[in-house]
Computed example of a mutant assay.
Amino acid sequence: MKTNMQRGGYEQKRHIQSFAELTADERTEIGNTIAIAERALKELKIAETVTLVQEERSKHFHIWIFPNQEWMLEKFGYGLQYLRDINAFAKDNASDADIENVIRTAEEIKKYIEGEDKYD
Score class of each variant (00 low, 15 high):
T33H: 09
H15K: 13
E48Y: 03
M5E: 07
W64L: 11
K110T: 04
G79Q: 08
R39Y: 04
F19N: 01
T23R: 00
H62L: 01
V50Y: 06
T33P: 00
I36T: 13
K13R: 12
E74G: 15
G115A: 14
Y78D: 12
T49C: 08
N101L: 08
T28Q: 08
E56Y: 06
A90P: 08
E21K: 00
K75R: 13
I46M: 06
I99P: 00
G9N: 06
F66I: 15
R57F: 05
D85T: 07
Q12L: 15
F61H: 00
R104Y: 09
G77N: 08
R84E: 02
I16V: 14
V102R: 13
L73W: 12
I63Q: 02
I99N: 13
E116N: 05
I113Q: 01
F61Y: 15
R27Q: 15
V53N: 07
R14C: 10
S58H: 08
I63H: 01
I109H: 05
F76C: 01
Y112F: 15
G79Y: 04
T28S: 10
D96V: 09
E100C: 05
Q81T: 12
D98A: 01
R14K: 11
V53S: 07
A40L: 02
Q69C: 05
V50W: 03
R27L: 08
I16A: 02
I99R: 13
N4H: 13
L52M: 06
G9P: 04
R14F: 10
G115W: 04
Q69K: 11
